[in-house]
């Protein structure tokens, strides 16, 4: 038996919205420690790794490990029926073929209950393992989203060049070029506005704008995003949850 109660339905809504355009369905792996997902997009360029730790939930129990195959579009439709501020409880019996979803309005005496049919998904997992990191940038997630959107008007690729004291985002396209430079900044009054850059080795990587557009759909999950970059390796884009994370691993482009 799995049962997890979210204080607010909005959290699961945001998680599903951030994932559903990249992968259509995935397995939710439920253990006593929480719920995790690993899923790769069809083109095998972008990998999503989600961890919702037990502490994220108002109440959580999982007596036995269960894997729930979920169609994210369908889940999104059902979750969309609840108000953001509702309590949201998901539950499933062991060997269940459906996921039970209950919304409780905190003010009105109203409870809405739905069942989502589960899918049998043949998971095709990748061993991500611990990765070395040459450069780490932390910046406001909204700023990163704007950079990606702004640069996308110019090119299908976004080049990220990190040096000791700056990160340069650059796009070169048919209509012209664009550059955005950000530098470390400590904002004591508004720590969420701070920018940090730590560097072991300079970085020059290019990523597909299309995939970055998918990644920034997670912006509402966290005020900050942490970008971990390593030469000739996938970039890691991490949005922290209250307890856990949503991470994207994006394969870089290469020069032909």
């Amino acid at each position: 038996m799995l049962e997890g109660k979210f204080e607010e339905a909005s959290l699961l809504k945001k998680i599903v919205e951030a994932m559903k355009d990249c992968v259509s369905s995935c397995n939710f792996n439920c253990t006593e420690n929480g719920i995790s997902v690993q899923a790769v997009d069809n083109s095998r360029v972008l990998l999503i790794s989600l961890l919702i730790e037990k502490d994220t939930f108002e109440e959580y129990r999982c007596d036995r490990n269960i894997t729930l195959g979920v169609g994210l579009g369908s889940l999104s439709k059902i979750i969309g029926n609840g108000a953001n501020s509702d309590y949201l409880t998901i539950s499933a019996d062991d060997d269940a073929d459906k996921l039970n979803i209950i919304f409780e309005d905190k003010v009105k005496d109203k409870i809405s209950e739905y069942n989502l049919k589960l899918l049998d998904i043949d998971a095709d997992l990748l061993d991500v393992g611990p990765m070395d990191t040459d450069a780490t940038i932390t910046l406001p997630s909204a700023d990163f989203a704007k950079i990606c959107k702004d640069m996308k008007v110019l090119s299908e690729s976004l080049q990220i060049i990190v040096t000791k004291d700056s990160a340069l985002f650059q796009s070169v396209g048919d209509i012209g070029t664009g550059n955005i430079v950000i530098r470390p900044k400590t904002d004591i009054d508004h720590p969420e506005e701070s920018v940090t850059i730590s560097l072991d080795k300079p970085i020059d990587l290019s990523f597909g704008s299309k995939y970055l557009s998918d990644i920034i759909k997670a912006t509402s999950l966290s005020q900050k995003v942490t970008i971990k970059l390593t030469d000739q390796s996938p970039g890691v884009f991490e949005y922290k949850l209250p307890s856990g994370y949503l991470r994207f691993y994006l394969a870089p482009k290469f020069d032909e």
């Binding site: 990748l126 061993d127 394969a251």
Partner: peptide, 14 residues
């Protein structure tokens, strides 16, 4: 010109 790499190049199947 640049091409897109696959994650399979970096991560092995589990």
């Amino acid at each position: 010109m640049s091409g897109q790499q696959s994650l399979n190049r970096f991560f092995s199947a589990r």
